[in-house]
Design a protein around this nucleic acid. Structure first.
Length: 534
RNA sequence: GCCCCCAUCGUCUAGCCAGGUCCAGGACACUGCCCUUUCAAGGCAGCGACACGGGUUCGAAUCCCGUUGGGGGUACCA
């Protein structure tokens, strides 16, 4: 299966609004556009939708562009790179929109509407009371200079409305939806220019798409219902609409409602979503980051970057949200994605965002990386946490490398390295899980004596490499007719302050004899304080 | 209200266009067992879906109609 070969050069676009954050659903849409452009040797255009931006655009756009760069979704035209169809900021294109409105007016495709808002309201009210669809009366439509003069004499202002057809049908061919037919009569006379002279999204979008020679409009399904009015504008402006493809929306976990960054509290009730969030929060807090729902939230791409996710894992997961190659392919390398992506494999139903599956992709991608690369990814987290020097010394690098290898698949995201604080903290600053300490040492009969004996054995150990320690401990328990379990837990708590972690012998080996002995001594001393020597 | 879109395991999906090989396949999650020094990971097994009702047909997850449910739109938002 494949899409029809595009006749004209492929030019697609993604038009982010400078909101200060990159939404994961937006990334999915952008990814499909990007993939389509790359597959067909086309251009991926980034156009900034800042027509009504009150805030500092540069500031609000930066996180979005950074997000795209981090993900590797490079754009061929747009902010920072320019292009021959600029400007790429809609705020700089206002005169073009005005010109388009003039053309619509001149061609009889739009009219100046001098109705007052309350008059429109009244007409609507009548229609609703009669349970009939509202149809604009066009009573205040000025189509001649005389009309205008008359209305203006009454002190009226105007907006420009589309003069929509009242019969016939709008047929559009959507690459994903197939043929979609609507009655023109169901369309309202939409406003394209406000009373203050500024233009609306639908008009601006179409004008830009025409002028930027956009060949395919690939966007979320929420725009499907709005497409007929855009088709009207396209044709009124003398252009044929581009090829359309409406993607299913990315929905909330376990639901079909569009994913929104504002409903974090609700999503946190989903255990898997909460787990994902919790993991990120733990990492962010250790880095001393302020965790605000506005900026730190799994609906926003920055969350993943700050937690140490891999862009490739996210992209691969997102690709499969609403698209599939076949009945089994899951992992697709970056170049494969480009090679096999076609719009005819896009699904029509909304796809709900599954945090657990995303994590699973992350695990797979992480594990596929050589230890060297995982180490390189982990290092910056430790530096930012202040647990190692920046830049790290060779000794620190070696330690981190050893920790990464010992942690193995426990390191799901790079930020998980921060779970191993005990390997980087000074002996006297080591935190202790008191429950574990009680269970394994304070209230475990015989454990302190065994620990003390093992300490002596460790002090005398010929070597401190993990296999040597394992042999030593094995002999130690065997000589006493015990299993490894008899000492492992006590040693772990004494040395790491924790009940869980990676292999004990790796832990001891990385810590080194000196610190291991010192920590055991400290634990033993604590026991003496709380319990008279027996 | 009106218009448009959608409907296979809890979730992502394959199959649907070209009806039989589907008492529906894979993945994630979940459950159990194995492995095991903890936690992970891994291995094995299990649970689990064609929304409903009519048609068409020898035969329907696949085609048609309807119902129900869900989503989106209907702004001088994008």
């Amino acid at each position: 299966m494949s899409d029809p070969t595009p006749a004209a050069p492929v030019r697609v676009r993604f038009a982010p609004s400078p909101t200060g954050y990159l939404h994961i659903g937006g990334v999915r849409t952008a990814l499909f556009n990007w993939l389509f452009a790359r597959r067909h040797g086309g251009r991926f255009v980034l156009r900034v939708d800042d027509t009504d931006a009150q805030r500092n655009v540069a500031e609000a756009l930066a996180p979005i562009l950074d997000g795209f760069r981090w993900l590797g979704l490079d754009w061929d035209e747009g902010p920072d790179v320019g292009g021959e169809y600029g400007p790429y900021y809609q705020s700089e294109r206002l005169p073009r929109y005005q010109a388009a409105v003039e053309r619509l007016l001149a061609g009889g495709f739009a009219y100046r509407d001098y109705a007052r808002p309350e008059e429109i309201q009244a007409e609507r009210g009548v229609a609703e009371a009669a349970k009939e669809p509202y149809v604009a009366s066009r009573r205040w439509a000025a189509e001649t200079e005389a009309d205008r003069a008359r209305f203006e004499a009454e002190g009226r202002g105007f907006v420009v409305r589309l003069k929509m057809p009242r019969e016939g049908q709008c047929r559009l061919d959507d690459l994903v939806r197939g043929e979609v037919v609507t009655d023109w009569a169901a369309e309202a006379d939409h406003v394209v220019q406000r009373a203050d002279g500024s233009c609306l999204y639908h008009l601006a979008s179409v004008v830009d798409d025409i002028e930027m020679r956009i060949s395919h409009v690939i966007r979320a399904e929420e725009h499907l219902s709005n497409t007929p009015r855009q088709v009207f504008i396209w044709r009124a402006l003398g252009a044929e609409p581009p090829v359309l493809a409406h993607l299913p929306v990315v929905a909330e976990p376990g639901s079909r409602v569009k994913l929104s960054k504002r409903k974090l509290d609700k999503y946190l009730k989903n255990p898997e979503f909460a787990g994902l969030f919790e993991r990120g929060r733990r990492i962010a807090e250790r880095l001393g980051h302020h965790v605000a729902a506005d900026t730190f939230n799994p609906v926003i791409v920055d969350f993943y970057r700050e937690s140490g996710f891999l862009p490739d894992a996210i992209l691969n997961y997102l690709l499969l949200l609403g698209w599939s190659l076949d009945d089994k392919t899951e992992i697709l390398a970056a170049d494969e994605r480009i090679a096999v992506f076609t719009l005819d494999r896009v699904n029509r139903a909304p796809a709900s965002f599954d945090p657990a599956k995303l994590l699973s992709f992350q695990e797979r991608y992480m594990q596929a990386l050589p230890a060297e690369e995982r180490t390189a990814l982990a290092l910056p987290f430790l530096e930012r946490a202040g647990w190692i020097a920046s830049p790290p010394s060779d000794a620190e690098r070696a330690t981190v490398r050893a920790v990464v290898e010992a942690a193995a698949e426990r390191l799901k995201v790079a930020g998980d390295i921060l779970d191993y604080e005990e390997l980087f903290v000074a002996d006297e600053a080591l935190a202790c899980d008191e429950k574990a300490f009680d269970k394994r040492l304070r209230h475990a009969a015989g454990a302190p004596a065994l620990l003390a004996a093992l300490r002596a054995a460790l002090a005398a150990a010929p070597g401190f490499a993990a296999p040597e320690l394992e042999a030593l401990c094995g002999d130690f328990v065997a000589a006493r007719g015990l299993g490894l379990g008899a000492i492992v837990h006590a040693v772990r708590v004494a040395v790491s302050g924790k009940a869980v972690g990676f292999g004990l012998f790796d832990l001891l080996s990385i810590l080194g004899r000196e610190r291991v002995l010192a920590r055991i001594d400290r634990a033993l001393a604590r026991l003496d304080q709380t319990r008279p020597a027996s």
